[in-house]
Amino acid sequence: MSNDDIQILPFYLVADVSYSMQQDGKIDTLNQLLPQLRDELVRNPVVGDMVRFGLIDFSDEATVVLPLTDIRAIEVLPTLTVRGGTSYAQAFHALRQQIEVDYQQLRADGFTIKRTTAVFLSDGAPTDDEASWRQAYAMLTEFEGETGAGFRLFPNFIPIGIGDADRAILSDLRHRKTGDAAMPAMFMADGGNPAKAIAELIPLLIKSIVNSSLAQVGSGESDQGAAAQAMATTLANADGFDVELD
């Protein structure tokens, strides 16, 4: 029997696990996200029934640590560990591939899938060459509505810079940058403590997922833009971060 009417909201965290993420306990702090998100989704079944969460890490290569999942059902949540450099191209490739895989799986299960929101967290500049990560980014985000050319499942993409992240580059990775569903870029405020910034980011990310899901309830009331806006405006209130949002 068809499940077409059941809406799934996909969220991905794409996390930098280059060696520098070990400093100041950044990675350990980030590992608190999944258990805290799980607690919130258990507490609020309206949101829990809709949200699927996935985790991709990247250094010299990218790994799908957790494919899109109802994390309430997972007893032992995966944790991130550091390794190697910072290839943005690998991260973008992996995300694109995984979104397509998830989409096919969820469609096979009959569900209706809302647009993926991807939070991209990095603490440094890419170590791969600019041409290759820019091409990978274009393959992830570019879509021509009229011709259907490009990636129809492109995600809403929220870059977050911690520590030594390159603001100019990350700012350029926001997607989309304009319109109803414009996404923010977020940067740890100057002089901040990176681990503390991540600790502050976690409840904010959870709240933005909750608010985005609630805005989506009865999608007729609130278009795709409203869910995206709820995500963006929640994040825009971040203490300790500079938020860029048109």
């Binding site: 809406q7 209706t112 899938i113 809302k114 647009r115 129809r152 499942l153 999608s219 007729g220 009331e221 278009d223 795709q224 833009g225």
Partner: peptide, 13 residues
């Protein structure tokens, strides 16, 4: 009917 024939559902109203 809403969303007929769209890959990713959306529905401005």
């Amino acid at each position: 009917v809403k969303n007929a024939g769209e890959a990713v559902a959306s529905s401005a109203t």
